[in-house]
């Protein structure tokens, strides 16, 4: 029994993305959904996915070598 809901029972308004995500997590990581709040948290991913989709044109893998620590050093105050 998950918190607040019988195990395996979806919330009434649960988006379609939740069940496939749960299945993918089970397959790839062997982790079962621990509670209803976890399921609720997956619902929250819809907004993140929408944001990533909106940014898709401007977000991409950086081809050039670009170490973060090097960027920290290059951007430090003394070299402003």
């Amino acid at each position: 029994m998950m918190h607040g809901l019988p195990e395996g029972q979806a919330m009434p308004t649960e988006p379609d993305l939740v069940m496939p995500m749960m299945e993918a997590i089970r397959l790839w990581s062997g982790v079962a959904v621990p509670n209803a709040a976890a399921r609720h948290g997956l619902v929250d991913h819809a907004a993140l996915i929408a944001e990533l989709e909106a940014l898709r044109g401007s977000m991409q893998f950086e081809e050039e070598p670009s170490g973060f620590e090097a960027a920290l050093r290059d951007c430090r105050e003394s070299r402003a």
Partner: peptide, 13 residues
């Protein structure tokens, strides 16, 4: 705790 396992779970997908 419920909130922690829920939060960690959201990192896997």
């Amino acid at each position: 705790a419920i909130h922690l396992s829920a939060r960690l779970y959201g990192g896997y997908p």
